[in-house]
Design a protein around this nucleic acid. Structure first.
Lengths: 180, 180
DNA sequence: AGTCGTAGCTTAACGGCGTTAATCATGGGG
DNA sequence: CCCCATGATTAACGCCGTTAAGCTACGACT
């Protein structure tokens, strides 16, 4: 239901009806609506982490290609799970204590990104940049692409693959040592 | 109220109480809640357009600097009006017929961005890129920065100015002709 | 001056929503 | 045989966005 209709459209009551329990039963297993859907999203993002982990070996010795492939995977994943992506990265959650992010698969995914950036730097492929800052900038940039494509369905965007490849090209070129 | 508490927290009823009218009166002037807050956002984004227009003359003859300044202005504007930004670019609106975007100040702002990109290309400063695609990629990238900073307050981001400058640097470098 | 139309607003209500408090059934262990 | 924990329910609270119907007061026209 969630994947098809989204956070706002799915109500605890309709959900309860679907699973043939009373609405209050759900509260025996989850603290509130946010908690429930966060759990669902965690599960889904764990899949992304597994896919990213696979790439690590696949691209061994080619850090720049690895980084680029990882970003592409992230984008495609977001576009394939728009509702999960929306809830995870586009909703202001109550309190959202930093703790919450720590325990999440999101943190694992970002860690991989950080490592890929570090690998590019270690291989001497990048201009003088800070690994952490660069990882954050890359994340933010690709997030913007996913976020707008997911939410602004009416805007006359160029073809998705074109936008994705052009963004990745631009970002990577902007980080490479200028000799290239 | 909206700027301080945000779309979800402001209810038509509380708003009505504040302006000392009955809730239903609001519906004589706006179609629904979305319509109301869209109007508020339009007003605000018109300010951004005016500021961007000012820059056009200020940076005449320096298209790359103009583009960069415009993107920076956009980011700072978004960060200064997080609630307006959220409603305008991070909420899925019902139908959101393309028409709606056409009449909006958002379209004007994007037009300016497109023109700045075109100016850079015309001045021979950019590698071979498509103006429309590039404008969209730039918008998406800076949107991601704003969106995450606004929504993920708990994530340990680097200092805002550092992130902004690093992103702008990376994006522009990624577009410039490689001799630079 | 008296009637009428209407502009501007309100009252009442519908059908939801997330969530909490209190309560009930039932089956296994002492 | 009783007790109690487990797992579920019923009822209710206090919101919400929105609609339908009705009220009131004032300006224009006869």
């Amino acid at each position: 239901m969630f994947a098809e209709e989204g956070y706002e459209q799915v109500s605890m009551r309709r959900l309860a009806e679907r699973i043939e329990y009373s609405p209050t039963t759900i509260y025996l297993y989850f603290e509130d609506k946010d908690d429930l859907f966060r759990a669902v999203c965690e599960e889904t993002f764990a899949k992304l982490v597994r896919r990213l982990e696979k790439q690590r070996q696949q691209y061994e010795g080619e850090p720049v290609a690895w980084l680029q492939a990882g970003l592409r995977e992230y984008i495609e994943f977001g576009l394939k799970h728009p509702e999960h992506y929306t809830v995870t990265f586009m909703r202001r959650m109550k309190e959202e204590s930093a703790v919450q992010f720590d325990t999440s698969a999101g943190k694992d995914a970002f860690d991989i990104l950080r490592q890929a950036v570090a690998a590019c730097i270690a291989a001497g492929r990048f201009r003088k940049v800070d690994a952490e800052v660069t990882a954050q900038v890359l994340w933010m940039s690709v997030h913007g692409l996913v976020a707008l494509l997911v939410v602004k369905k009416a805007f006359p965007f160029a073809a998705r693959t074109v936008l994705i490849e052009e963004q990745l090209e631009t970002l990577v070129r902007g980080l490479l040592k200028t000799q290239d």
